[in-house]
Amino acid sequence: MDPDNSILDDSKRKFISTCLGGLAILAVTGGAVVTSSIFRYYLIPRPTTDNKGKITIPVKDLAAGAAKFFEYNGYAAVLVKKMDGRLAVLSAVCTHLGCIVQWDAKRQEFICPCHAGYFTPDGEVISGPPPSPLDRLPFNVANGIVTIG
């Protein structure tokens, strides 16, 4: 197809093919490294938190039957002190379509404002479209301080 081929002898053509192969490798590796690292690192920077993703909240900040919302690992989360005084730490992201649930202190339930999903203070679905309970987050309590993560 290439008109130049007719004037090139075999050894030259072979040499040029080798060079082209080298260039192809350069282009593919260079392009791949640059684009992938830009996409992997520059465009999605991982948050550098000093507390290594741990959040601490004093228990006394919370009255019985109250909830406290906070950010954990880049997502909304909530700490609830149930009426009996037991604690629960849940992801506040509704399992249906990702809205943030609200705490209804009167009914002692979570309600998702988007499509009326109801959850118990432990995150179990009471009614509505959510397919699964709210995610539970690991936590422990020591000296009156809740440490999440």
């Binding site: 130049d4 090139l8 030259k12 040499f15 040029i16 060079c19 082209l20 080298g22 260039l23 350069l26 282009a27 260079g30």
Partner: peptide, 17 residues
């Protein structure tokens, strides 16, 4: 180095053409 090798390869092809 990457850019210099590319330049060299382009040059070699051109010279042979």
């Amino acid at each position: 180095g990457w850019a210099l090798i590319a330049a060299l390869l382009f040059y070699l092809i051109k010279k042979n053409l």
